[in-house]
């Protein structure tokens, strides 16, 4: 299986990259880590793929690589404020960062357990978001942390909360001429607790069947919940928050009975496309586990 022919464009700045996107529109595609895009292009150019997609949809004519722009893998951190993740920051970059380990343990945990080492070296967080998969591993933790995507084009700039970024399976709010220049992740307010849970078909490397990311911000040391975010992945057309379950925690101390009740409520907040009984059951179980763990974390 080979890649279809395309022209490779290597801008030296993000401005050049957005100018190229402005010129070529849907003829062009941004290449970050390649772990989704290149697989997709190979499949499209195969005999089987061309039957499914047709010759016209074989792929973009222009691939815009961001490797030539300096500084785009960088993590920037302003203590107590935000963490900035670059457009081609890899999972390995995040997993290797002691700052993330100490200040964003939820994100760190998600990145270091993501897929396998080779995919962690290449794959990027922004790429995972832009691919728009309902089962994207990294999107629920970003939603739980209240992350925002800074989206730029040659004509404008806007910020999109990550929870609003995906609109349907493999569809995002990104327009043809836009790219994600940065993820901005606010520092959770102390004291807080967190948990990241996921289950797959067989091995840890498989696609997620259920992803749960929980962030509980406490009003005080006795762990009354001031604000909760419960983000779910792979159980609906897009990663989303379990708003009703979240509101049940508001101003409460979580005890076993309440956690049990929430875990029952949360199952009804999912709408899985396949294996729905199993996914609902596992969402319920993993949310119970996550809330219990977040109280201790």
């Amino acid at each position: 299986m080979r890649l279809p022919r395309f022209e490779y464009l290597s801008p030296k700045t993000l401005e050049e990259a957005t100018a190229l996107l402005g010129t070529y529109g849907n003829q062009a595609k941004i290449l970050a880590g390649g772990t989704d895009l290149l697989v997709d292009l190979k499949k499209r150019s195969s005999i089987q793929g061309s039957r499914r997609w047709g010759k016209k949809e074989r792929g973009p004519c222009y691939v815009i690589g961001l490797k030539g722009v300096t500084g785009l893998t960088r993590l920037k951190y302003s203590p107590g404020e935000t963490l900035s993740v670059g457009p081609i920051t890899s999972y390995a970059d995040v997993a290797d960062s002691t700052i993330v380990k100490e200040s964003y343990p939820l994100l760190w945990q998600a990145c270091r357990t993501f897929s396998r080492p080779q995919i962690r070296s290449a794959g990027t967080l922004v790429g995972n978001l832009c691919n728009g998969s309902p089962s994207a591993d990294i999107v629920p933790p970003l939603i739980a942390l209240g992350a925002k995507a800074r989206v730029i084009s040659a004509r404008a700039e806007r910020e999109v909360p990550v929870e609003e970024f995906c609109s349907a399976p493999f569809t995002t709010v990104l327009k043809e001429d836009e790219l994600v220049a940065e993820l901005k992740i606010p520092q959770p307010a102390e004291p807080y607790g967190w948990s990241y849970q996921r289950t797959t078909k067989r091995t840890a490397e498989d696609e997620a069947l259920v992803v749960v990311a929980v962030l509980l911000e406490f009003a005080d040391r006795d762990k009354t919940v001031r604000r909760a975010r419960i983000a779910l992945g792979s159980v609906a057309p897009r990663p989303s928050r379990a708003l009703e379950s979240e509101s049940m925690t508001q101003g409460k101390k979580l005890d076993e009975a309440l956690i049990q009740k929430i875990s029952e409520t949360v199952a009804a907040e999912t709408s899985p496309r396949s294996r729905s009984d199993y996914r609902r059951l596992m969402t319920s179980y993993l949310v119970r586990k996550a809330l219990t763990e977040a109280l201790g974390n």
Binding site: Y8, S10, L31, V39, G65, R116, Q118, S121
Partner: peptide
């Protein structure tokens, strides 16, 4: 050749990568 099996693994700057999913130009 689709990034699943790992038999094309090479090291780039000491880190493991799947060479079937890396463009030579990159």
């Amino acid at each position: 050749n689709l990034g699943d099996c790992g038999s094309c693994t090479v090291l780039l700057d000491g880190k493991p990568f799947l060479s079937c999913l890396v463009l030579a130009v990159e």
